[in-house]
């Protein structure tokens, strides 16, 4: 049985699904449960990473640093992790998070822009943080390009490099091929982060494991942007059938999912028309709720917005382009 490290994203990617409304009491309850169940890395931040609380991405209801601090205080064994997207968050934000007690950082860039992560990865390493590289929207490039970018993150000192299927667009063979090529050419471990827009999050995660990935993301109830991430309590059991183990206790994980996370959810984490469209058009998953809002405000079909965003090849973080596209679609309609 091969050991896999599962990283929980319920309180980071999952933050998108509840429009960044986590409270201190909620994150404490989730973090304690995850820690006791044996999860090694618990990620917590605004959905768009540290510093993501803005008009563009939505303001956090509770200051994320206070949420981070609360989690750091109750967690006994797990490493509390933040996400940092250079261009949104800065090294100063990481400094603040270090004061609150974090132990790990994932530095995320669009999958062609790895070189902007150098200063951040090097800084995090100098502070003795577990530092991961994270390549977003990995479906948009071929495996050779992805390898080139992963090698950059390795050269900066990343502990592992993640392939993130941010749009939930990839299918199992694509995941397998990309992970395999990276696995064969990098000295550091490979990770995979799924979105469930095509109902493939678990299948893709297993495929990544089979190709040699050893870090996999999941979230309780699958809570995350779009149709969410790989459902952690499910993944943890399914992977055993494929001879991969996590050493995380199954029952406690199920209990936190149903007793703590489910009551917090604003809607069921299902694949609906809009999130399915994300998977079809290859659009960044966290655009979903913003696109819904813009469609209402400008009275246009949300599917048209997503198709146009896909055509324009928008990358993660370009939520502002939703407004531009909706505005233009409305103007064209009125002509």
């Amino acid at each position: 049985m091969d050991k896999i490290t599962l990283i929980d994203t319920t309180m980071r990617d999952g933050s998108h699904a509840i429009s960044h409304t986590y409270t201190i009491a909620e994150v404490i309850a989730i973090a304690q449960g995850l820690d006791e169940a044996g999860v090694e890395y618990i990620e917590i931040a605004h959905g768009d990473g540290i510093g993501g609380s803005t008009i563009n991405y939505g303001f956090s209801k509770t200051n994320e640093l206070d949420l981070i601090e609360a989690v750091c205080k109750v967690v006994k064994k797990a490493k509390v992790t933040i996400l940092l997207i250079p261009g949104v968050g800065t090294i100063e934000d990481v400094e603040e998070a270090i004061k609150r007690g974090i132990k790990a950082v994932r530095v995320a860039t669009h999958c062609t822009e790895a070189d902007i992560s150098k200063q951040h990865i090097e800084y995090c390493l100098s502070k003795k943080l577990d530092t991961f590289g994270f390549l977003m929207m990995s479906h948009t490039v071929n495996k050779e390009k992805l390898l080139e970018q992963a090698l950059l993150m390795e050269s900066y000192g990343a502990k592992a490099v993640y392939i993130a299927d941010s749009a939930g667009y990839m299918i199992t063979s694509d995941v397998y091929d990309k992970v395999k090529l990276l696995k064969n050419n990098l000295k550091i471990p490979i990770g995979f982060h799924a979105h469930n827009n095509l109902s493939l999050a678990i299948a893709n995660s297993i495929s990544a494991m089979q190709a040699g990935a050893s870090y996999i993301d999941g979230s309780l109830k699958g809570l995350g942007a779009g149709s969410g991430n790989a459902q952690l309590e499910v993944l943890n059991c399914v992977m055993e059938r494929y001879n991969f183990i996590s050493n995380i206790k199954a029952y406690p994980l199920m209990d936190i999912a149903s007793d703590i996370v489910e009551p917090i959810m604003k809607r069921p984490q299902i694949i609906n028309t809009v999130s399915l469209m994300l998977g079809i058009t290859g659009v960044y998953s966290s655009f979903m709720l913003h696109a819904n809002e813009a469609a209402k405000k400008f009275d246009v079909d949300v599917r048209e917005i997503l198709v146009e965003l896909g055509k324009r090849k928008m990358v993660g973080g370009q939520e502002d382009k939703i407004i531009e596209v909706a505005y233009e679609l409305k103007n064209n309609k009125n002509k």
Binding site: H110, E113, K313, V315, Q318
Partner: peptide, 10 residues
């Protein structure tokens, strides 16, 4: 104030 920068490879 806040400023965000996004690089787009399209």
């Amino acid at each position: 104030s806040r400023a965000i920068i996004i690089l787009n490879p399209a």
